[in-house]
């Protein structure tokens, strides 16, 4: 007898489905594929070049020779396969699609909200579009990326997602931050 298993998002009962977003908005991405890419010894530069050339994926820096590859366009299995085909022996790819939660914070006050938890300078001149970094947000390590003028993506470990969500809501209270699942 085959079993059908329902996937459950880490924030499922805590966040409602899409509604009207406020000026400052936190979108919880319902489904994403995230893979950690670890370049093999000596292959760091070539892996970086291959990854950045691929337009279907978004590459986030975590450490020397280590990136998070994020995409909303592919399933975890497909991303894993396409990365394996792309990188072959030059890297190890570890599926983290279930181990991470993707959040998108946007709005004119996004920097003011993040400054309540993050110690790095997020001024547009210091953290430019396309920048990404592992940073501490309050007590929780996250990967932060600036994907558009006032739009940040946050990748957080699944087990910390609920606490981070609470923290972000607290940080966004003054700005009436809205939170919904992304469509």
């Amino acid at each position: 007898m085959p079993h059908q298993f329902q996937e459950r998002h880490a924030l499922e009962e805590l966040v409602s489905m899409n509604a009207a977003a406020a000026a400052d908005h936190l979108a919880v991405v319902a489904r994403q594929a995230i893979v950690v890419v670890l370049a093999a010894e000596g292959q760091e530069a070539s892996v970086a070049a291959l990854l950045t050339a691929d337009e279907e994926i978004s590459v986030r820096f975590s450490a020397p020779g280590e990136w998070l590859v994020v995409t909303g366009l592919q399933t975890p299995e497909l991303l894993q396969q396409s990365l394996a085909a792309l990188l072959r022996e030059t890297a190890h790819c570890v599926d983290q699609s279930h181990g991470r939660v993707l959040l998108r914070l946007s709005g004119a006050n996004s920097r003011a909200i993040l400054a309540k938890g993050i110690g790095i300078d997020l001024h547009p001149s210091a953290f430019v579009i396309g920048s990404s970094a592992n940073v501490l947000c309050g007590h929780i390590s996250i990967n932060l990326a600036l994907v558009d003028k006032n739009s940040f993506e946050i990748v957080v470990m699944r087990s910390f997602a609920e606490s981070l969500l609470h923290d972000l809501c607290e940080m966004g209270r003054a700005f009436d931050l809205s939170v919904f699942f992304a469509p």
Binding site: A10, G138, S159, A161, E162, S163, H166, D167
Partner: peptide, 18 residues
């Protein structure tokens, strides 16, 4: 600051919590 009560430390939630 906000580091008090439930915000004093993050709470880690197991995927089997529910």
């Amino acid at each position: 600051g906000t580091s008090r009560d439930e915000h004093a430390a993050p709470k880690r939630v197991s995927p089997l919590h529910g």
